[in-house]
Simulated assay, not measured.
Amino acid sequence: MASATPVVIYPPDEDGGRRVRIDNAIVGRAFSVRDVAAFMQEAGLQGWDEMDVVRSSLIEWRGGGVDVWWQ
């Protein structure tokens, strides 16, 4: 990650996917915490796992928290 700007996880869509924004770019859709961890790893945080995602203050969850994947 180039900077400490928050990662934004948007509300779930009709398929249960949530858009993920890192460094002001949409990097894809996540369907689970594991997917978010994979995006974080691709952004340069290779050691991250699901628990890091759950505990991180860098992540802003919109439209529900870490346990919300369906509308």
Rank of each mutant, 00 (worst) to 15 (best):
M1E: 10
M1L: 11
A2Y: 11
A2P: 13
S3N: 13
A4L: 11
A4N: 11
A4Y: 08
A4T: 06
T5K: 14
T5S: 14
T5L: 14
T5D: 13
P6H: 04
P6L: 06
V7F: 05
V8E: 00
V8Y: 07
I9A: 11
I9Q: 04
I9L: 15
I9E: 02
Y10M: 15
P11D: 11
P11M: 02
P11F: 09
P12W: 07
P12T: 02
P12L: 08
P12E: 06
E14P: 08
E14R: 13
D15I: 09
G16M: 00
G16A: 06
G16L: 01
G16K: 03
G16H: 02
R18L: 05
R18W: 03
R18N: 05
R18H: 02
R18I: 03
R19K: 15
R19T: 09
V20K: 00
R21T: 13
D23G: 06
D23I: 02
N24V: 10
N24H: 11
N24W: 10
N24E: 12
A25C: 03
A25D: 09
A25V: 12
A25G: 08
I26N: 10
G28W: 01
R29C: 13
R29V: 13
R29E: 14
A30H: 00
A30Y: 00
F31V: 07
F31K: 09
S32I: 01
S32H: 00
S32M: 03
V33W: 01
V33S: 08
R34A: 15
D35P: 01
V36L: 08
V36A: 03
V36Y: 02
V36W: 00
V36P: 02
A37G: 08
A38L: 10
A38G: 14
F39E: 03
M40Q: 09
M40E: 06
Q41K: 12
E42M: 12
E42Q: 14
E42W: 07
E42V: 11
E42A: 14
A43M: 04
G44Y: 04
G44S: 06
L45W: 13
Q46D: 15
G47L: 09
G47C: 09
W48R: 04
W48G: 06
W48P: 05
D49C: 10
D49G: 15
E50N: 09
E50G: 10
M51E: 15
M51Q: 15
D52S: 09
V53G: 04
V53K: 08
V54C: 04
V54L: 05
R55T: 11
S56H: 06
S57E: 13
L58I: 12
L58S: 15
L58C: 14
L58N: 15
I59P: 01
I59M: 00
I59F: 01
E60S: 14
E60P: 04
W61M: 03
G63S: 08
G64S: 05
G64C: 03
G65F: 05
G65E: 06
G65K: 00
G65T: 00
V66Y: 11
V66M: 00
V66E: 12
D67N: 12
D67L: 12
V68D: 00
V68Q: 04
W69S: 02
W69H: 04
Q71C: 09
